[in-house]
Structures are given as C-alpha cells and as structure tokens.
Design a protein around this nucleic acid. Sequence first.
DNA 1: AAACATTAGATGCACACTCATGTGTTAGGG
DNA 2: CCCTAACACATGAGTGTGCATCTAATGTTT
Lengths: 134, 134
Amino acid sequence: MVPVDDDALAAGWHELMGRYQRLTCALDRELQAGHGLSASEFEVLQQLSHAPDHSLRMSELAESAHVSQSALSRLVSRLEVDGLLQRSACTQDRRSLFVELTALGVTRYDEARPTQRRVLREDTQQAGGCLQRE
Amino acid sequence: MVPVDDDALAAGWHELMGRYQRLTCALDRELQAGHGLSASEFEVLQQLSHAPDHSLRMSELAESAHVSQSALSRLVSRLEVDGLLQRSACTQDRRSLFVELTALGVTRYDEARPTQRRVLREDTQQAGGCLQRE
DNA sequence: AAACATTAGATGCACACTCATGTGTTAGGG
DNA sequence: CCCTAACACATGAGTGTGCATCTAATGTTT
C-alpha cells in the first residue's frame, strides 16, 4: 500500500474543487445564455441521448447523471414542462417511471452540445486542465 | 497542439462531476454530523488557518476558497455568529474587510481536519481516486 | 475640486437543492 | 393470505446560492 500524504490529498481536493467550480460556473452561464439549460439539465439530456431509445428509469438517470433523487424529480418536472422530455409509466414495475427524450429534447441537446464542448475545450487549454484520462 | 477529442473531454468532465459530487456529499455529511460545518465552511477555515496571522481580506478569501463573493459574505456572517471568526476593518482601504480566525475557530478547524482527511483518504482508496497530483 | 468610473462588500429576490416525510408498489416471511 | 420491510418517486419546509443591485470608499480625468 502506497503511503498517501494527507496534505497532498487535501491539495488535490482543493484543486478538484477549483476546477469544478470554474467549469460549472462557465457551463451554467453559457448554456443558460445560449440554450436555457443549466449544467445539470444538460447532463441529464446527455445521459438520455446516449441511452437506448433515449429512455431511462428515473433511478438509473439519477445515478448516471450524478444528481440526487429529489433534485432529479424536480429537474425532470421542469424539462417536462419545457417539452424536452416526458415521463411514462413502467408496466413491469409500477413504482418506476421511464423518462424519454422528445424530438424537441434531442434537437435542444444537439444544439447545446457544441457549446458545452467549446467551454470544456477552452477551459482545458487555458488551465492546462486535466480533464482527459491519463 | 495536441488534438483533443471532444468526447474524451466530455467523459473527463463527467468523471470530474462524479468525483466532486461524491466527495462533497460525503464531506458535508461527515463534517456536519461531527463538527457542524459544511464542506465550504471547512474550506474557508482551512484557507484562513494557512494564512499569515490567520487573516485574509474577503476578496482574497473568496478567491482561495473557491467561493463566490456573495456566498462568502453570507458564509462569513454565519461563522461570525458561531464565533469561529471575526471581521475587522482594514485601515489602508476602508472598502476592504479582514477576516480573522478566532481561537475557537482554530480549535474547531483542528478538530475537523482529521475528519476531512479521513473522508478524502477513504474515497481515494475506494474509488482509485486521482486526487493526488501526477 | 468636481464628476465619473471602479472596486469591496452587503443584500433583496428568485430559484434549485437537501432533508425528511408521504404515497403508492413490490417482495418476503410467518 | 396478511403483515411488514424495502423500494421508487413526489413533495413540503428550510436553507444556501447566483444574479442584479445598492452603498460606501477609492482612483482617475479634466
């Protein structure tokens, strides 16, 4: 077991916090201005767009989009009002709900994706950001 | 210039989000339960404790703790009520305020630090977490 | 010196989040 | 079967945050 220096760990965490704050802030600003989406909302659309049939259970979606259960419930409500996705019952387990991207949701995601990618790229270049895997 | 794959960038960002959410959640839970501090509040105490005279200007503190100006203003108000720190005027520039850790604040930070380090260590081990620098 | 621009910090407001709990559904004993 | 536990999601209450704006102090221009 490699001995891990606590202070190095704290420094790493501090750096992670910084990068996260900076990126979240930039993404929120640009996605909101350009497409009326928050970073979390974009992330939800992204996970759905990568799912088979553009559809996932709420619980699966919460897991894969790194959003809490209650936050997802409200977030999905908002996006459903906007017409970007829709909930539908799950006949196998009536406790579950499926969330499915609408055509409008697909379009909105496709429009927003270049913006998100651009922000990520800009930050990575400017900050020597270590987003890519080693 | 190395060509950067947009999808790899997005994957890296997704991973960063996950690690941040997981750690923030764990830190908030444990620090709150054990010491009545949020992760942000702990971070502020930490920056102050590493500063000369345990004292920083609000603007410096906001920068180094990765907290927005308005969030810091309220956060400092809370911690001041709790007696962990105190604001004091800056005679050179009366727009600025100094924030200084009180004895109680130092104590509280020293108590909380092992908890924070433990959470970081546990997460790093469990998730192969890449917190340490390369 | 007067007028204007800039900066530091506080605050009203709207909003998203967390926590705890409620409702309805499914699964597992006794 | 019935009763209880576990689960999926929704929701009310409380709280922290961001944005825009305000006040006060400083810097700059003419």
